[in-house]
Amino acid sequence: MAIIITDECINCDACISECPNNAIYEPDQEWSYSDETALSGTITTPGGAEVDADAENDPISDEFYYIVPDKCTECKGFHEEPQCASVCPVDCCVPDEDHVESEEQLLHKKAWLHGE
């Protein structure tokens, strides 16, 4: 499953540089699938939606850092555990029960994001 940042986030910035998928964004920051990934142009997401990878999407949160679920792989294929959770000083990076995925799905998403 993806990781979510709860509203207990203190916006400390510790997690953002740890994410190998560039899935974490600052409050009120627009995001795109192409940010620091191999994706560009028209793509099909793992969920089957056709989107423009370069399009700027509305922020998920305007109050605290947030994680884009379609870009989060729980660091599978990179690290043993989600790096955002391991560095968070207030333990607000937790499993997102709304985005449950198997290890196989997460590794497929990693390959999709990075053109492997």
Results as ranks from 00 to 15, higher is better:
Pro89Lys: 06
Asp91Thr: 07
Ala85His: 09
Ser17Glu: 12
Lys76Ala: 15
Ile43His: 03
Ala49Lys: 15
Glu97His: 03
Pro46Gly: 07
Glu63Thr: 15
Pro20Tyr: 08
Leu107Gln: 09
Asp91His: 12
Glu81Lys: 15
Asp70Cys: 03
Cys12Arg: 02
Ser102Met: 04
Asn11Glu: 02
Thr42Arg: 12
Glu81Leu: 13
Asp52Arg: 01
Gly41Ile: 02
Asn21Lys: 05
Lys110Ser: 06
Asn21Thr: 03
Tyr25Arg: 09
Leu113Asn: 00
His79Ile: 06
Leu39Cys: 05
Gly47Asp: 14
Cys84Trp: 07
Pro20Val: 01
Glu18Gln: 14
Thr42Phe: 04
Ser34Tyr: 01
Glu101Ser: 12
Ala55Phe: 07
Asp28Ser: 13
Ser102Arg: 06
Glu116Ile: 13
Asn22Tyr: 11
Asp35Gly: 02
Lys110Asn: 10
Ala38Leu: 03
Ala14Arg: 13
Ile43Thr: 06
Ala14Phe: 12
Lys71Phe: 00
Thr6Glu: 01
Glu8Arg: 13
Glu80Asp: 15
Val87Pro: 08
Val87Met: 06
Ala2Lys: 11
Tyr25Glu: 00
Ala53Phe: 08
Glu26Arg: 15
Leu106Cys: 08
Phe78Gly: 00
Glu18Arg: 13
Glu103Pro: 10
Ile10Lys: 10
Leu106Pro: 09
Leu106Trp: 03
Cys92Asp: 03
Asp58Cys: 09
Ile3Arg: 15
Pro27Ala: 13
Ala85Asn: 09
Ile24Gly: 00
Ile5Cys: 00
Asn57His: 13
Glu74Phe: 13
Asp54Cys: 09
Asp13Gly: 15
Ile24Cys: 04
Gly77Tyr: 08
Val51His: 04
Ile24His: 07
Thr45Phe: 05
Val87Gly: 07
Ala38Val: 07
Ala53Glu: 06
Asp13Lys: 13
His99Ala: 04
Lys71Val: 03
His114Ala: 00
Ala2Phe: 06
Ala111Gln: 11
Asp7Lys: 12
His108Met: 12
Lys71Ala: 00
Asp35Trp: 10
Cys93Trp: 02
Pro69Glu: 00
Asp7Glu: 13
Phe64Pro: 00
Asn22Gly: 10
Asn11Tyr: 03
Thr45Gly: 05
Cys75Gln: 08
Gln29Leu: 03
Thr6Arg: 07
Val51Thr: 08
Lys71Pro: 04
His114Ser: 00
Ala14Val: 04
Tyr65Asn: 11
Cys72Ala: 04
Val87Asn: 10
Val87Glu: 01
Asp35Cys: 09
